[in-house]
Amino acid sequence: MLSKREWVWGYLLIAPMALGLAVFYLWPIAQTLYLSFTESGVFGGHTWVGTANFTDLLGDEEMLGALGNTVLYAVLVLAGVPVAIVVAALLNVPGLRGMSVYRTLYFLPVVTMPAAIGLTWRYLFNGDFGAINYLLGKLGIDGPYWVGDPDFAIYAIAIVGVWSSVGYNAVLFLAGLQGIPRQYYEAASMDGAGRLRQFFRITLPLLTPTTFFVIVITMINALQVFDLVYLMIDTTSPALNGSRTIVYLFFEKGFVQNQRGLAAAIAVVLLGLILVLTAVQFRLQKRWVHYE
């Protein structure tokens, strides 16, 4: 039964949140859409310019570069997802001692602020004094200037991106693994399937709902990468051409060069990109995700 009192309570309880979301989420979305059709004056004010920002972005080398860098980064970080599956599978080995110690260590990068992580890795990647090139040198490999060279910078950032998210994804996969009923494995053992075969025949297919979730989340986060680029690459570095991401460009245009209208257009493009790629993911899921 719907009592009027219940209505009132319902509205009262959601009111603060709804109001806040309206002010800090809904209104900004509308405003950003509007601003993306305007040009900002150097010292304030904006004028309507129609779709000029979008057509400018379409032909802008920096924007196209940033799009390419961002997509490449997302692909590289997604390529790191299997690492998390392997880690989770190993953590899930029955009778493994010290599981929670391992889990803590793998999770450490997740709780550390990206600003600190970026600085640390920037030094590790230093071409002359960094530990990574030193170790590569021991193997007889002459390491590149990872963060100084536009051809390598995005790979260096992606390595850090994978490193700092393995723990988070492994925890999600571990939860997925623990949801797979033991009986499947027992039945497979009876049929004489080895552990590797069980992994490919049982674990991977039954883990696909988690895999799908992780891929979508990882992709959305990767498309919005900013912190690592900002801390690992100097604002004047030539390597920025090979590592400037969409959000970085948004920050540069909006809050360094004060071209807010153009920045708003960049944000709208990003929204479109995320929506399209997520929709594609959801369409593709029917082909490979197994729901029990």
């Binding site: 990647f125 071409g127 002359d128 960094g130 100084g148 100097d234």
Partner: peptide, 18 residues
Amino acid sequence: APVAEVYTDTDPIQLFQS
């Protein structure tokens, strides 16, 4: 003189102090 990437990896002021 070292190649260009060296100066983006390490700021010249610090590099000189090595």
